[in-house]
């Protein structure tokens, strides 16, 4: 098997050493308690977990905004927790693992869309002609070319997030982490962003780590990880994970309504599968089941 893009081993983290825990007395509780996982290149992984489960902390550790308390992180086989890492190495990690945040207003720097997209490559010292090419390419990839000369505050939430994504793509990353990037958007904005994410994953082969607590978005992924209380509690395809309806409920999450209905019907003795996600699939199964039972009655 090829080398995973991201490898995490026994990762723990607590805010004890950080200056962020105001009002917390004594030892800060561990936010992550020994997480190990591998992310394959080109995959679309969704990380689910309730608020405060540690999923955003994991993301910040992966691109070195935070430093782990213990454990190892390997990016493309390189140990990034090694104290011998130089500042240049660190910026190389940040370039390769891009990050899009929750609040669309708080991550755009410039007053003009294309200038903002250029911000990353400019920081990397890319030659001007090359930046121009990358910016045009990135804006086209997120479908925002016609807004290149607009000011960010004239855009909708979904559009701002797409500009933020373009700003990351222009740095030519291997992987993009979306840290609840759809949480503040309306359904229209969510759809725009999810379509963009899927297209980037499929067409450009960019590895996607999508952090969310929206179940419908998770059904689009290849793989779903569920984190609760700083631990990895479920890991599998969306079908496998969502069939554990009860387990998901106990960690404060939900399942698609169709999955829930099938689970309730199974409890009533119906011989139906537990890993159904979409309504069309559910309707097929249920209508067939009902017809067969009519015959047998």
């Amino acid at each position: 098997m090829a080398q995973p893009l991201i490898s995490v081993r026994d990762l723990t983290f607590s805010y004890a050493g950080e200056d962020r825990q105001e009002g917390v007395e004594g030892d800060a509780p561990a936010v992550l308690k020994g997480i190990s996982l591998d992310v394959e290149k080109g995959s679309f992984v969704c990380i689910l977990g309730r608020n405060g489960s540690g999923k955003s902390t994991l993301a910040k550790l992966l691109n070195m905004i935070l430093t782990p308390t213990s454990g190892k992180i390997f990016i493309k086989g390189k140990d990034v927790t090694d104290p011998a890492m130089t500042e240049d190495d660190m910026f190389e990690v940040r370039r390769s693992i891009g990050m899009v945040f929750q609040n669309p207003d708080n991550q755009l720097v410039a007053t003009i869309v294309e200038e903002d997209v250029a911000f990353g490559p400019e920081n990397l010292g890319v030659p001007p002609e090359e930046i121009r090419k990358r910016v045009d390419g990135a804006l086209a990839a997120v479908g925002m070319t016609e807004y290149a000369r607009h000011s960010p505050h004239q855009l909708s939430g979904g559009q701002k997030q797409r500009v933020a994504i373009a700003g990351i793509i222009a740095m030519l990353p291997d992987c993009i982490i979306f840290d609840e990037s759809t949480a503040m958007l309306d359904p229209q904005g969510r759809r725009e962003v999810m379509n963009t994410i899927q297209a980037l994953n499929r067409e450009k082969g960019i590895t996607v780590l999508h952090i969310t607590h929206n179940m419908d978005e998770a059904t689009l992924a290849d793989r779903v990880l569920v984190i609760d209380g700083g631990e990895l509690v479920l890991d599998g395809t969306p079908r496998q994970v969502f069939s554990s309806v009860r387990r998901l409920r106990t960690v404060g999450l939900d399942v698609p309504q169709v999955t829930e209905l099938f689970s309730l019907l199974r409890e009533e003795g119906f011989d139906l599968p537990g890993d159904v996600l979409s309504e069309e699939e559910g309707a097929d199964l249920l209508s067939r089941y009902l017809k067969e039972n009519e015959k047998s009655q």
């Binding site: 891009g98 720097v109 490559p121 920081n123």
Partner: peptide, 21 residues
């Protein structure tokens, strides 16, 4: 938030920075 986002986009001050325009 903005400071973190800028760090994630490899901002390290004016040194070694190029400009598109």
């Amino acid at each position: 938030d903005l400071a973190v986002a800028m760090e994630c986009r490899c901002y390290r001050g004016g040194n070694g920075r190029t400009r598109m325009t």
